[in-house]
Design a protein around this nucleic acid. Structure first.
Length: 655
DNA sequence: AGCCCGTCGGTTTTT
DNA sequence: CCGACGGGCT
């Protein structure tokens, strides 16, 4: 290798720090490489060492691209690489596909026909937009897809590169009669996004793919800038992402992808776990390395997870082993009710804490965000501090969205969603008035300040005067992001107090948001980050590091727990119909994905793994009583999974 | 009559 | 925490 000739004798002892398979992956030089990395097999370690290795060998850090599922994951790897080697590693280009796409699109916005900045809209924004269009076409009341389903359908079509018709026939046959109407909504949704200068998440990926595909010279220039590309969690990438990689990698692909087909859990987002197995066909000459030694879990946990994944209809090719013996057999506990489940988990957590397990080494995992509501109440009652990851997002809290809306219209005055939000907060202004005002603002063509020129009726003028005053302030040149945020907050605080009982807590959130703004030199960059990489809880992003006493346990959806590990893990609601979820049990493909999801949950645990479920729960939507533990667990025998059931009032529980 | 505003029920998973 | 819904204000 040309870059290897310059390399100094290695200071890092790779062969001591890594097992042979990991070492082979780290020392791999050029050409395509596929690493099939089982759960807990040191995947992050391998990627980290490879970054260090490339930098140590003299590859400029800026020409290495590390694509991960979250920006945090990339930062963590680069931080660790910098600890191994030196600060050069921090200069590696890294982040999510969406973040990377966004950066390039901003730089080349002109080519995409955006003469002015665009706004990235998140999921709820996209839903509102589609919801409004849905209303316009007067959908039949019954059985017509909700705005949520519509967005899911549109997104699937994009990410799987399928026609609307194919997506509906395949996944939503009951919507077949509405195909034409759905197509019309999709057409208007696209139109509306252009009109308001919106890009949704999918548009970022498609935009980058099209940018690279349309301009060979530009593509070659960008590709040349990244001589080594590494992709984490490859099993969860979709077709567009694969195309982007193909375009970036060029003819001499120095492309390393790492993943685990048995941990693919994003099919609903267009990911296909078969992509990872197809990689060697797509890139002839691919070296394939398997990491099969698990360093994370004790033998009883690994025995359970191996037995779990063996149930998959689609067989996977790895067999994980561990040298970590000892440890308890995982346990399934049935409780009488949901609340009893919560209290049982709380008691167990207390016991672990007494034994000296630190709170940040304990996690409770669940299939869906709302499954934890009851537990959250119990934990709060007991004074146990926790962070919740996944489910409802911090950024989706109304007060955060309100404040951001006031800034978004400054960056993009065509942002109808934000204007709508801002105007509805004004007393006596509803949807109709808001629309009228928005039309007038667009007509005025003078940016957010277009509001200033509006001639409003005598009824509205006094009510909108404070808002006008805000945007007069915003017009001042050279305002920093924080100054804009402060101005918006001064305007918004009275509304906050009027609308929310818990306004002091919300006001503190907004103060935190202001401290985050201080890091940003441009409003666009701040808003883009809030849409692409929102902080999942503001406290952590604040100025002070958590003090020792502030350690908190983790509540997380299984999806958000991917890639993480804890000493002790509880999986709650392991009830058939909840996990696997009812929506999935009819379809073998979806059922397999639920199984992989359960596998991801179970493989997070190092020492203790406990499943719990209430004995029965009524599912309103399906009008069914759920009263069996998850079929994935029922299939396991007693040596692999121990059972404990609180006897019902009538007598001992039968298995 | 048009529009605003309070109340009530259902909610997969994510960039 | 959003949508549908009905009461009441202009």
């Amino acid at each position: 290798m040309p870059w290897e000739k310059k390399a100094q004798p290695s200071a890092l002892r790779y062969d001591e720090a890594l097992n042979p398979a990991q070492c082979e992956a780290v020392m791999h030089a050029e050409g395509p490489l596929l690493v099939i990395a089982g759960a807990g097999s040191g995947k992050t370690r391998t990627l980290t060492y490879r970054v260090a290795r490339l930098v140590e060998a003299g590859v400029p850090a800026g020409s290495i691209l590390l694509l991960t599922f979250t920006r945090k994951a990339a930062q963590e790897m680069l931080r660790r690489a910098a600890l191994l080697l030196d600060e050069r590693c921090a200069a590696v280009a890294g982040g999510t596909f969406h973040g990377f796409a966004h950066g390039l699109l901003r730089r080349h916005a002109a080519r995409l026909g955006f003469d002015r900045p665009f706004t990235i809209i998140d999921r709820p924004d996209a839903e509102s937009l589609v919801g409004a269009i849905r209303k316009e076409i007067n959908p039949p009341l019954r059985a017509f897809p909700t705005k949520r389903s519509l967005i899911n359908i549109f997104s699937r079509a994009v990410n799987k590169a399928q026609t609307l018709e194919a997506v509906i026939d395949e996944g939503y046959p009951h919507f077949r009669p509405f195909l034409d109407a759905i197509g019309e909504i999709q057409r208007r949704y696209r139109e509306r996004k252009v009109l308001h200068r919106f890009m949704d998440y999918d548009d970022l990926l498609v935009g980058l793919r099209d940018l690279l595909a349309a301009d060979e010279n530009l593509c070659a220039r960008i590709a040349a800038a990244y001589r080594f590309i590494m992709v984490d969690e490859y099993q969860d990438t979709n077709r567009i992402q694969a195309e982007i990689l193909r375009l970036l990698a060029g003819r001499r692909p120095n492309l390393m992808v790492v993943g685990d087909d048995s941990q693919s859990i994003y099919a609903f987002r267009g990911a296909n776990f078969r992509n990872i197995m197809a990689f060697p066909e797509q890139y002839p000459g691919t070296r394939v390395i398997r990491l099969e030694e698990n360093y994370r879990s004790v033998q009883p946990i690994l025995s359970l997870t191996n037995a779990l994944i063996a149930q998959a209809a689609e067989k996977y090719t790895k067999h994980l082993f561990t040298r970590r013996c000892g440890g308890a057999v995982p346990l399934l506990v049935r409780t009488y009710s949901e609340n009893e489940q919560s209290r049982w988990v709380v008691d167990e957590i207390r016991r672990l804490l007494r034994q000296g397990v630190p709170p940040e080494q304990i996690a409770v995992l669940f299939r869906a965000g709302y499954h934890a509501f009851d537990l959250e109440i119990e934990l709060a009652r007991e004074g146990l501090a926790f962070v919740k990851v996944g489910g409802f997002k911090f950024m989706e809290a109304a007060h955060i969205k309100d404040l951001l809306a006031h800034l978004r219209v400054v960056a993009n005055p065509s942002d109808r969603l934000s204007w709508h939000r801002i105007l509805l907060l004004v007393d006596k202004v509803g949807p109709k008035t808001a629309q009228t005002i928005f039309d007038a603002i667009v007509e005025a063509r003078t940016g957010a300040a277009g509001l200033l020129d509006l001639q409003l009726g005598p009824r509205l003028e006094p009510r909108l005067a404070p808002l006008k005053s805000l945007y007069r302030q915003m017009e001042a040149p050279g305002l920093s992001v924080t100054q804009m945020g402060e101005a918006a907050l001064v305007y918004y605080l009275p509304l906050l107090k009027a609308n929310y009982e818990d306004h002091p807590k919300r006001a503190r959130d907004l103060e935190q948001l202001l401290t985050i703004m201080e890091r940003y030199a441009s409003l666009d960059a701040f808003l883009a980050d809030m849409a692409l990489e929102p902080p999942d809880h503001l406290a952590e992003e604040g100025l002070h590091l958590p003090r020792p006493g502030e350690a908190r346990l983790t509540l997380s959806t299984v999806h958000s727990a991917k890639g993480l590990e804890w000493h002790s893990v509880f999986v709650i609601w392991a009830l058939d119909g909840r996990f696997p979820s009812l929506q999935a049990i009819e379809d073998p493909e979806q059922l397999d994905e639920e199984l992989r999801l359960m596998y991801v949950a179970a493989t997070r645990a190092r020492e203790n793994l406990t499943f719990t479920c209430p004995m029965q729960a009524y599912d309103r939507a399906a009008d069914r009583v759920l009263d069996r533990p998850s079929r994935f667990l029922e299939a396991l025998d007693d040596q692999i999974l121990a059972r404990a059931g609180e006897p019902p009032a009538a007598g001992p529980c039968r298995w």
